[in-house]
């Protein structure tokens, strides 16, 4: 069984790697198998781990509370069926929209609250609390390399944050007495931000490449180990 699975896995991996020679039916077949298996697996997981336990497995400790905790989600889940087709009837659209509105509303509330409390405010505080002095007690035991590295990192973070914010400043040409100064100031920091954005995008791309190379290495390693196994090595 393991051998069959290994052979099948190796074969599918080779079919995917056949894309090196261009788009071909083998690649398409492996692609479709991968998508189909993933979806099928997700459906089964959803049924066995979410729907079935939530609707049909009562909590013995809850008692009558089971009905109150399971009936509303069941109704909302049933109403989502009306959203299967995009062109529902008026009543179907309304009913489906009820559950969808519930999902969107709760999700938006959670996302906004989490973004405020978990990203915006902490990140702002973190940037504002950067200490560029070496006398920071937090760095007392840090080696000199770390201190220099952290100091440089903080400088980059500050410049990058300010410059990026200026880069996304969309205003008309300033007017007035200090219009020239304002224009020059904004343009300078916007230019800095532009470079920060470029470097960030480059870093993202490099990390993406590194991640994809790691995936390729993993697959090649699987092939090598699989061939060795099949070859009896």
């Amino acid at each position: 069984m393991d051998t069959i699975g290994l052979i099948l896995s190796v074969t599918l991996t080779l079919m995917v790697l056949s894309y090196i020679f261009g788009d071909n039916p083998l690649f398409k077949l492996a692609e479709h198998i991968f998508v189909g298996v993933s979806v099928g697996y997700a459906v089964l997981v959803g049924w066995y781990l979410v729907i079935n336990p939530a609707l049909f497995q009562l909590n013995p400790d809850a008692g009558a509370f089971n009905l109150l905790t399971k009936f509303p989600p069941a109704i909302l889940a049933f109403l989502l069926i009306f959203k299967v087709r995009p062109n529902q009837t008026r009543i179907g659209g309304v009913l489906g929209s009820v559950a969808l509105a519930f999902l969107v509303g709760v999700g938006a509330a959670a996302a906004i609250a989490g973004a405020l409390l978990g990203t915006l405010i902490p990140q702002t505080v973190a940037v504002a609390g950067l200490d560029l002095s070496a006398a920071n007690p937090a760095y007392a035991d840090a080696p000199a390399f770390w201190l220099h590295n952290q100091f440089l990192s903080n400088i980059v973070v500050i410049i990058g944050t300010v410059g990026t914010l200026f880069y996304f400043t969309f205003t008309h040409r300033p007017q007035g007495a200090l219009s020239g100064f304002r224009s020059g100031f904004v343009n300078f920091w916007a230019g800095m931000g532009r470079w920060i954005v470029l470097i960030t995008l480059g870093a993202l791309f490099a990390n993406t490449v590194s991640a994809r190379v790691a995936l390729l290495v993993s697959r090649v390693q699987f092939l090598v180990d699989g061939i060795r196994t099949l070859a009896g090595g």
């Binding site: 902490p122 505080v125 973190a126 960030t200 990390n207 993406t208 590194s210 991640a211 994809r212």
Partner: peptide
């Protein structure tokens, strides 16, 4: 993943 690091690093820097 390495591709997610640029997005996760700020959270690490902010502890």
């Amino acid at each position: 993943s390495a591709a997610v690091e640029p997005f996760a690093r700020p959270y690490r820097d902010s502890n």
